[in-house]
């Protein structure tokens, strides 16, 4: 299994040079509020930091990169496929399979347990439900004992870790994290960044963190700055 995974990551690395690449992205909400973003390039397996003040359009950019929103102009290549050209169910399926997104605040389907939330992620990505894998990932992030709890019963820290689990569950090629640390104190911030970096490396996924949290600056060599 380990050998197979290693082979898979290696193949992905040589076959696809740039996991994420954007060209000439602009987005306008209306005449007065429009953004134009710098071109972004993230190599396969790389970990990047996208820094920007609030109001610089960070979240908008993350949504465009994650295929949650269409840009006004420009292209976003994920795994060398232009997701701005994808439509409807095809885009949804692609997102479910290849992109894991972590939001600033953790949200879950509140009527389901943590385990069922992760099962849902597998189902929506058209992947078979794999309870063993779910427990494995939950254990790896030290919340295996919370698998049968409803999300709202978890502490904020546990919820954050559970949402990281959800982003990882389908073995995504690209992980996008929106302000994962801004609400956390220094020690928790440290822990979450460690977790994200470790898990992304372990899954061989490309990681991009979008934040205004300057504490993270020292942790990433590849940094992109957004200006408003």
């Amino acid at each position: 299994m380990q050998v197979y995974l290693a082979l898979h990551y290696w193949l992905r690395k040589i076959l696809i040079e740039n996991m994420l690449q954007s060209r000439g992205l602009t987005f306008s909400y209306d005449k007065h509020r429009s953004f134009s973003f710098p071109d972004i390039e993230c190599k396969t397996g790389e970990q990047c930091l996208l820094l920007g003040e609030s109001g610089s359009g960070k979240t908008t950019l993350l949504h465009v990169l994650g295929g949650l929103r269409k840009p006004t102009a420009g292209s976003v290549m994920v795994q060398e496929q232009d997701i701005t050209k994808m439509t409807g169910a095809a885009l949804d399926r692609f997102r479910g399979r290849h992109i894991g997104i972590i939001f600033q605040q953790s949200h879950f389907v509140t009527s389901l347990t943590i385990r069922e939330n992760l099962q849902l992620a597998q189902k929506f990505a058209n992947l078979p439900v794999d309870d063993e894998k779910i427990l494995q990932i939950l254990n790896r992030l030290n919340i295996g004992d919370r698998s049968e709890a409803k999300p709202q019963r978890l502490s904020v820290g546990e919820q954050q870790r559970a949402s990281i689990c959800r982003a990882l569950i389908n073995g995504p090629d690209l992980i996008l994290a929106d302000e994962p640390t801004s609400a956390l104190d220094d020690s928790n911030c440290e822990e979450v960044v460690n977790l994200l970096q470790d898990q992304a490396a372990r899954e061989g996924a490309t990681l991009m963190i979008v934040t205004h949290d300057t504490r993270l600056k020292t942790r990433f060599s590849h940094q992109i700055e957004l200006h408003s």
Partner: peptide, 16 residues
Amino acid sequence: KYELALMRVMGASRLK
């Protein structure tokens, strides 16, 4: 609404 958006993020289509 947020749950529904979340399901979309996870890969559920509009039709779903």
